[in-house]
């Protein structure tokens, strides 16, 4: 799969941009948290597209965001 670029994303309508980002993020998140992947992806899609693009290129920052999201989700579900 070719890397997602800002110009590829900008060519799509806003709602579709989140869809595209979600399709890229979901498998990465699913590998770490199979049961929470849908919810975590939903949370991360609230982040700016430009930041999501950077996260897709940087596994470390993606992982730390995922852990942050899991912590928020666990508190939220209590």
């Amino acid at each position: 799969q070719e890397p997602l670029t800002a110009s590829m994303l900008a060519a799509a309508p806003p709602q579709e941009q989140k869809q595209i980002l979600g399709e890229r993020l979901y498998p990465l998140i699913h590998a770490m948290h199979p049961f929470l992947a849908g919810k975590i992806t939903g949370m991360l899609l609230e982040i700016d597209n430009s930041e999501l693009l950077l996260m897709l290129e940087s596994p470390e920052s993606l992982h730390s965001k995922i852990e942050e999201a899991v912590a928020v989700l666990q508190v939220h579900q209590m």
Partner: peptide, 22 residues
């Protein structure tokens, strides 16, 4: 509470029902 359904769940292959970037 309206927050019960937060966050919206992403399902691969289905149209995203959440909010677009503002």
């Amino acid at each position: 509470s309206s927050s019960v359904n937060w966050p919206p769940e992403f399902r691969p292959g289905e149209p995203w029902k959440g909010y677009p970037n503002i």
